[in-house]
Each structure stands twice: as structure tokens, then as C-alpha cells.
Design a protein around this nucleic acid. Structure first.
Length: 418
RNA sequence: GUGAGUGUAGCUCAAUGGCAGAGCACUGGUCUGUGGCUCCAGUGGUUGAGGGUUCGAUUCCCUUCACUCACCCCA
């Protein structure tokens, strides 16, 4: 025996869990609709180019984590590692822009990254994302963050920290990067191996290093929020003012950076202390240059993505109000089985969850099954009852039994059980 | 990609270089056609796989696979 198992990092969503996902999804839908977002579903498979252009050629995601392969026509395609690029692609492709008002979209679905699995990190994982496209006003940043924090309030998940930063834009980021490079260049030999590598690929990421040796240097490093251009500075201040106005708590994190190249200006992360190493529950930011990078008209936008598996770990275990079996039908003997099979079928159509035991099994066995399934009522019918034209209905909780006539049995049951 | 830990019954886990164990679950009885609770009995194992050391390995060693955690990365 060598049973086939799921791939590493790919998980089955089992019945117990799926009820909780449903309940999360319904809360989510409510929140999104109230904030004016419409659902969008994009394909899971896209041209590889879409991601290399948007996420960035030298990011870890693109360099070593994407599921990329040749399609039958020889062209490279990729299982989406994130959702924003596809949403923006669809926005441009279908002309979803609304005149003088931002387009607000949300999505929900699986993402794929070939990483080594660990707590809170899978190869196929699920994200809920929201994007506001076509508006540069800082009020949109605030609205989006309000939605994000409201969502977690509704789920009654506490102990989260909203960290925000500004990464600057095409005008002020390159000079800042130069300043940062010259700063780290002096002490380069003292940095850890990873940071030496980062120095070449993406010096901003050094700010993210958790190693003690690097921290001393990082603490003194110039931060992006001190090197913003006037426009970015004003924008960042306005976002903070807006958050204050809505009484949304946040902390400024000058060292917060993002792993995807397309982010500009506002960047944020929602973190928890309850999940081990993978502490980011949601994250996002503004990406004013992305639409242009994908070949569309310059379109400012901002969005976030929430890691569903990570949220589920925080989401109350008790939330799964699994539906209870209402009626178990216990026929004794084949004749009873034939009489009751149509009853089973009709009662179900009355929207009552009903199951039926095997007629050949002893009543004791069937009662036990009914108990296991958590049945509220059991309908018993053997030869004796059949001759009298009756059936027994037992209330499993009170043990009270009553007789029902077989005529109109379905209607009588429907009345008694609803 | 790097490092560490763990693989024993369906599940959760014990144990010892010398016959493989418990709890839960399952099946039957206790209880003639009535579930849960009690008590009793029973089923269930190539100790992840392969090799080595040994009279003898589940235990020690090597290889391999799987899972887990951390690094990394990120949601």
C-alpha cells in the first residue's frame, strides 16, 4: 500500500474547517459591500510576464518561488503568486474605470508560491484582497485601512497592530536608495551574509533584517520617511490625519518595507504576536506606478491582501455552528425500508436534514448511529407498527415517544420538526 | 535553498539492545425491538522505507522519504 498523498504545502480543507471558512466569507462579503466593493474573479493561470513586470524581476517571489511552466504553445505561464497584478490587468483589459470615481474591487482565492512550508506558510494559500483603483487621494488610503481594521473587528480578532510607513515614489525613492546605499557601503563587511546579498539586490530589505549584528547599523540608517518628496510627505501626513480622524490606531514603522517592487507611498502591515514567525496577517500599500508598468494609462491605486489561513488560526474555534441532524429514520426490515425510503426523500425536500439507516441492521445499531450523528429525532418503523399503520417518533433528548399515523406522514413530520 | 526536531495501532502517546503497551475510537456482550453512562471481552502493528553493527535492533550507526519548526521570504 502506497496511497497517493497531497503535495507538500498543499492542504485539503476538511469539513470541520470549511464551516468556519464559510462564516468568515459571509462576514467578509458584508463588509466589502458596505464599503462599495464588487467581487472580481481572475484566472489562476496568467502569462509569466504579468508577474515579472509587476512584482519585480529581482524579488524573491519572481526569482525562486513561482510555479512557472511552458504552456502547450511554448509560452511561459505562471500560477498566480498574488492577486493585485491580475486585478489591475483585468481593470485595464476591460476598461473598468468609472469616470471621476475610483473602481473598488475585491477578490478571494488561491495563490501559489513554492516556498518551504512552515507554520502559517503554504505553497497553495488563500488571500482576500481589495483594490481601489483610479484615485490618488489619501482619503482612499484611509478608507481602505478602515475597511481592513473593521473586517478584523467584525471577526472579533484582537491583538493586531497596524504598522504604516511611506516608501516614497518614482521621484524620491531613487535618491533615497542612493543615500541608503552609501550609508551601508561603509559598514558592509559587518553586515550578515544575507544583507550583503540584499545590498546588491534590494538594499531596502536590509532594514528588515532581524539579526542582532545588523540591527545596530539599521537603527542609525536613514529612513525613507525623512527623504520623501513634498508630494509624498503631504500624502503621508494626510493619511495619518485621516486615521486619527477615524480613531484608527496605528504605529509608524520607518523600517517597514515591502517585498514587491510595485509599492509606492503608503505601505502597511497588520501583524499579530500569536502566530509564530509568520506574523503578518494582512499587508498592502499604494501602487501608483503599476498600471503604467503593465502597459496601461498611469492610474493611481491602493490595495491590501489578507492571508486567510493565518486569519483562520486566529478566528474563534467555537464559531463553527455545525448544522445538527434533525431526523434519523430507522426501518426494521426490507419492507419498512421500502416504505420509508420515499419518506426520507420527501422530508428532505421540506428542508429538514434527514438520514436513514440500513433496514437490515438491528434497531440497537441504528439507534447508536442516530446518536453518533447527533439526531434530534428518530423515526422507528418495524412490522408491528406497519400492521397498525403507525410509526414511532422518538425525541432523543427527552426520550419521549409518540405514534404517528402513516397517512400524510411527510406533512406530519414536517409540522412536528419545524 | 540552509539548519534543527519528530516518525510506534484509525487518533493521542508510552516502553526497553531480549515476546510490542496504554488511553480514546471501533466491534460484541452486560441490556430479546431502543442511543449516551458503567463494567467485561475482542479486533487492530512489517515500530515510515532501505541498509549496517549485533547472538538478537522498535532502540545504536548510515542512507532515504515524510511531517513539523526555525532561517530565508511573505500574506
Amino acid at each position: 500500500m502506497n496511497p497517493i498523498k497531497a503535495l507538500k504545502g498543499f492542504k485539503d480543507l476538511l469539513p470541520g474547517e470549511s464551516a468556519r471558512w464559510e462564516s468568515l466569507a459571509s462576514v467578509l462579503r458584508e463588509c466589502f459591500h458596505a464599503f462599495g466593493f464588487s467581487a472580481i474573479q481572475t484566472p489562476i493561470l496568467e502569462r509569466t510576464q504579468l508577474f515579472t513586470r509587476s512584482i519585480g524581476e529581482t524579488t524573491d517571489i519572481v526569482e525562486k518561488e513561482m510555479y512557472t511552466f511552458e504552456d502547450w504553445d511554448g509560452k511561459p505561464v505562471t500560477l498566480r503568486p498574488e492577486g493585485t497584478a491580475s486585478v489591475v490587468r483585468a481593470f485595464l483589459e476591460h476598461g473598468l474605470a468609472i469616470p471621476s470615481f475610483p473602481t473598488k474591487l475585491y477578490y478571494y482565492g488561491p495563490m501559489f508560491r513554492h516556498e518551504r512550508p512552515q507554520a502559517g506558510r503554504l505553497r497553495q494559500f488563500h488571500q482576500i484582497g481589495a483594490e481601489i483603483i483610479g484615485e490618488s487621494d489619501p482619503r482612499q488610503d484611509v478608507e481602505l485601512l478602515s475597511l481592513l481594521t473593521y473586517f478584523f473587528q467584525r471577526l472579533e480578532i484582537e491583538g493586531l497592530t497596524l504598522e504604516i510607513n511611506s516608501l516614497g515614489c518614482a521621484v524620491c525613492r531613487p535618491p533615497y536608495r542612493t543615500v541608503l546605499e552609501s550609508y551601508f557601503k561603509e559598514g558592509l563587511p559587518e553586515l550578515c551574509e544575507d544583507c550583503q546579498r540584499r545590498f546588491k539586490t534590494n538594499p531596502l530589505r536590509i532594514l528588515d533584517c532581524k539579526k542582532e549584528g545588523c540591527k545596530a547599523m539599521v537603527d542609525q540608517a536613514p529612513v525613507s520617511s525623512d527623504h520623501l518628496c513634498e508630494e509624498c510627505e503631504t500624502h503621508f501626513k494626510a493619511v495619518q490625519a485621516g486615521l486619527d480622524l477615524l480613531k484608527i490606531p496605528y504605529v509608524l514603522s520607518p523600517l517597514l518595507v515591502r517585498g514587491l517592487d510595485y509599492y509606492t507611498k503608503t505601505a502597511f502591515e497588520l501583524t499579530t504576536k500569536d502566530l509564530g514567525a509568520q506574523n503578518a496577517v494582512a499587508a498592502g500599500g499604494r501602487y501608483d506606478g503599476l498600471a503604467e508598468a503593465l502597459g496601461g494609462a498611469a492610474t493611481p491605486a491602493i490595495g491590501f491582501a489578507i492571508g486567510i489561513e493565518r486569519v483562520m488560526q486566529l478566528y474563534g474555534k467555537s464559531k463553527s455552528a455545525a448544522p445538527k441532524l434533525k431526523l434519523f429514520i430507522a426501518p426494521l426490515g426490507e419492507a419498512a425500508g421500502e416504505l420509508l425510503f420515499p419518506v426520507l426523500n420527501e422530508v428532505r425536500k421540506k428542508k429538514i436534514w434527514t438520514e436513514m439507516g440500513k433496514p437490515s441492521l438491528a434497531l440497537k445499531r441504528q439507534m447508536k448511529q442516530a446518536d453518533r450523528l447527533g439526531a434530534e429525532f428518530v423515526l422507528i418503523l418495524g412490522d408491528r407498527e406497519r400492521e397498525e399503520g403507525k410509526a414511532i417518533l422518538r425525541d432523543m433528548r427527552t426520550k419521549a415517544q409518540s405514534e404517528l399515523v402513516l397517512e400524510n406522514l411527510v406533512d406530519v413530520l414536517a409540522n412536528r420538526l419545524t
